[in-house]
Design a protein around this nucleic acid. Structure first.
Lengths: 138, 138
DNA sequence: ATCCTTGCAAATGATTTGCAAGAGT
DNA sequence: ACTCTTGCAAATCATTTGCAAGGAT
């Protein structure tokens, strides 16, 4: 019984090969857009349909297994939900890197929200720029 | 010669009524998705086409007149570019509020980027939760 | 055994494109 | 005058839906 098998069942979802395939791709890749996930899962599950990928991404986001990372000027990427972190998004190659969020105290964000009597539920920080690799190659 | 007329010309764009209409809607509303902009501009410019709105949003984002605000689970919204700020996004009604960014020191963000040798160009902070109005009405 | 999930194909929705006519500089 | 921009209609691309067959619990 794999780790993701358990995660899915605990979220009220059946652990189908298609779902496990999507999670395995995201574990390997870190972040991917829907069509990229589809292309990669197909290598192991040639019969999976794009509609199935859409349906599963949707339900897994709903249940909190996955997180959507919306990105300016591109399609959203998806990742397995883990503890909060910052995204460094390369404007050149589109790659997404994670960085731990401790640098930004959560209390600060909570204070900002309180100013407007806003009930904070989650936060999302994206930094846009040029990654190490692309700086070298431009 | 209106303020936006000048902004457009300085960005190398002709100040057409359609563009001024879009900017006027965004000035009034703060943030809007494309179809919402279209519906509102149409009131003053009944002949404007949706394709024109798309083309203009695209070129004005390219030239830095507008900023795209990508939002998890919804369509992107657009706003007139002003100094950096945080977005408070209501999960209930979809409204977007601005808050000044001083609460989050830019140096902190720069430090995080430096850890990965990432050349920072801009940042985007979204806080998701329930706005004051919706807290009252649920 | 039951209910959830899949894959297909069709439907819908969103965005982009090409081009002749019109508007801004 | 020149060039950029518009509006239209068509093309393309992205996403959703309905449903019968198959799979997980």
């Amino acid at each position: 019984m794999s780790k993701y098998h358990t995660v899915l069942n605990q979220s009220g979802l059946k652990a189908t090969n298609q779902r496990l395939g999507i999670l395995e791709v995201l574990r390997e890749r870190g972040h991917s857009a829907i069509d990229d996930i589809y292309q990669r899962v197909k290598k192991h599950h040639p019969t999976i349909s794009l509609a199935t990928v859409y349906k599963n991404i949707e339900v897994m986001v709903e249940r909190g297994v996955l997180l959507e990372v919306p990105i300016a000027g591109r399609k959203s990427q998806y990742e397995i939900k883990k503890r909060d972190h910052i995204h460094l998004i390369c404007l050149e190659c589109g790659s997404v890197m994670d960085e731990m969020i401790e640098a930004i105290p959560q209390e600060r964000l909570a204070q900002v929200a309180q100013r407007d009597d806003f009930l904070l539920s989650s936060s999302q920080i994206n930094l846009y720029g040029i990654c190490h690799n692309c700086q070298a190659s431009i």
